[in-house]
Simulated scan of single mutants.
Amino acid sequence: MIVLVLSVCLLAEADTCKNVHLTYSAQSVSPMQCLMGGQAQIAQWSNGHPKWQVKRWKCATAAQITQDI
Rank of each mutant, 00 (worst) to 15 (best):
H21G: 04
A26I: 15
A62Y: 11
W52E: 05
C59D: 03
I65A: 08
M36A: 06
Q44F: 11
K18D: 01
G48Q: 03
Y24P: 08
M32F: 04
M36H: 07
A14V: 13
G48N: 10
W45S: 07
N19F: 13
I65H: 01
Q53N: 06
L10F: 10
I42D: 01
V5R: 09
W57H: 05
A26K: 07
A12Y: 09
M36K: 07
K55V: 03
Q39R: 15
V54K: 11
S28W: 13
M32L: 02
M1F: 10
Q27K: 05
V54E: 00
Q64G: 02
K58N: 06
V3I: 07
S25Q: 13
Q39T: 13
P31C: 04
N47D: 14
C9S: 01
D68W: 10
A63V: 02
A63Q: 02
T23Q: 15
K18C: 03
L4F: 01
L11V: 10
M1I: 12
H49I: 03
K58Q: 06
K55W: 05
S30Q: 02
W57Q: 06
Q44A: 08
A62F: 15
A62Q: 12
A62V: 13
V5Q: 10
T16P: 10
A12C: 08
L11W: 11
K51Y: 10
M36L: 14
V3N: 13
W57T: 06
Q41L: 12
A43L: 14
T66G: 04
G37C: 10
E13R: 06
Q41G: 05
A12L: 10
G38P: 04
Q27M: 09
S25E: 11
T61P: 09
V29F: 06
D68M: 08
Q44T: 03
S30D: 00
I65P: 01
L4A: 04
D15Y: 14
D68S: 02
A60Y: 06
L6H: 00
T66L: 07
M32D: 02
Q67C: 06
T23P: 14
